[in-house]
Design a binder for these strands. Structure first.
Length: 289
DNA sequence: AATGGTACCAACCGCGGAACC
DNA sequence: CGGTTCCGCGGTTGGTACCAT
C-alpha cells in the first residue's frame, strides 16, 4: 500500500515512513513547531526533504487527524462543496475537521466521483447554495478554468465568513445525531472572522483562512498551538520564540548565538547562521534540555 | 493454488503564488 | 523591483490488498 523506501540522488530518503521517522518528526514539531519545512528535517535528524515531512505531518501525524471510513455526513459535505467549488480539496479539508485534503481527494476519486448525479442534485436541493460573488449558480468552479474564476475564487476565499458553506455544514451535520460535536467548530467559524491565535506557529495558507481551532476543533481553544505544551519527561515547556531566546541566553548554546536574541529570528535560523553541524542539533538540544 | 485485474491510498511531483532578499 | 526561496495545492504515480477467474 505504501511506496518502498529508497534513497534518491541527493541522499534523501523517499517512500514509506518508518515508525522511528514518525516519532522523530512528531516529537520535533511538538517541541519546536514547524517554522521552516526546509530546515526541519535536518534539525530533526531526518533524511527527508522538507516537503515530504510537511506532507507526512499534514496528512498523517498532526493532532486530531482522522483516519478510516468517511461518514455519510462527511460524504454529503464533500459532495456539496465539490458541487460548489470543484477540486478545491484544501478548501474542503478546512471545513472537514480532522480530514486532510489528500484523504478527501482520494475518497472523492475512489468513492464519490462516479456516484450518480442524482445524489448531487439531492444535496443541492437539500442545502441550497446562495449565489457566489460574480459566479452563476450553474457554473461550478473548476481548477482548469481561466482567470476569471480564479479571481472569483480569490474573492470568495478572502471572505473569512462564508455563510453559505456554513449553512451547508450546519444543515448536514445537525441532521446527524452521532457526529462528534461539530457545532462548536462551526459556531467558532461563523462567529469569528479572524481568530488566528497570537504566538501560534501553526502556519496555514492564506487561501482558506483555516485557524488552529478550525483545524482541531476538539481541542480547547488555544491548546496545542497556542499554549505552553507539556512534553515528555525529557522535554521542556516552550510557548514562544521568546522562550527560545531565554533558553539560549542562559545556555551554553547562547555563546554560539550572541547576535540572536535581539533579532527574534527562529531558532533554526540562528543555528544555521552559526554554520554549526545541523545534524547534531537534535541530539544536542535533547541532551541539553 | 495461481494468476490477472481492480481498488485503494500514501507519497511524489510540478506548478503557482507569497514571502523574502 | 527583479531574483530566489519556500510553501501549499492539486494531479499523478507506485505498490499493496483484495477479488474474480
Amino acid at each position: 500500500m505504501v511506496r518502498a523506501p529508497r534513497i534518491d540522488q541527493f541522499g534523501m530518503k523517499k517512500g514509506a515512513w518508518s515508525e522511528d521517522e514518525d516519532n522523530k518528526l512528531r516529537s520535533f514539531i511538538a517541541k519546536y513547531g514547524h517554522k521552516n519545512w526546509c530546515e526541519l528535517p535536518k534539525l530533526a535528524g531526518l533524511s527527508r526533504c522538507g516537503r515530504s515531512c510537511r506532507l507526512r505531518w499534514m496528512n498523517y501525524l498532526r493532532p486530531n487527524i482522522k483516519h478510516g471510513n468517511f461518514t455519510k455526513q462527511e460524504e454529503d459535505v464533500i459532495i456539496g462543496l465539490h458541487n460548489k467549488f470543484g477540486n478545491k480539496w484544501s478548501l474542503m479539508a478546512a471545513r472537514l475537521p480532522g480530514r486532510s485534503d489528500n484523504e478527501i481527494k482520494n475518497h472523492w476519486h475512489t468513492h464519490l466521483k462516479n456516484q450518480p448525479a442524482v445524489r448531487n442534485d439531492e444535496i443541492s436541493t437539500a442545502f441550497p447554495i446562495e449565489e457566489e460573488v460574480g459566479k452563476p449558480d450553474d457554473e461550478p468552479i473548476n481548477s482548469n478554468k481561466t482567470t476569471t474564476e480564479g479571481c472569483s475564487m480569490k474573492i470568495i476565499s478572502n471572505l473569512n465568513i462564508q455563510v453559505d458553506e456554513v449553512g451547508i455544514l450546519l444543515a448536514v451535520l445537525s441532521s446527524s445525531s452521532d457526529h462528534e460535536s461539530p457545532s462548536s467548530s462551526l459556531t467558532s467559524k461563523s462567529s469569528s472572522s479572524s481568530c488566528l491565535s497570537n504566538g501560534s506557529d501553526y502556519v496555514v495558507s492564506s487561501h482558506h483562512h483555516a485557524t488552529p481551532h478550525d483545524q482541531f476543533p476538539d481541542e480547547p481553544a488555544g491548546s496545542f498551538w497556542t499554549e505552553p505544551f507539556l512534553l515528555d519527561s525529557e522535554s521542556i515547556i516552550v510557548s514562544s520564540i521568546s522562550d527560545y531566546t531565554d533558553m539560549f541566553s542562559s545556555s551554553p548554546l547562547g555563546s554560539m548565538t550572541n547576535n540572536f536574541i535581539p533579532q527574534q529570528v527562529s531558532i533554526q535560523d540562528s543555528i544555521m547562521a552559526d554554520g554549526s553541524d545541523v545534524l547534531s542539533w537534535s541530539s544536542t538540544m535533547d541532551s541539553y534540555f
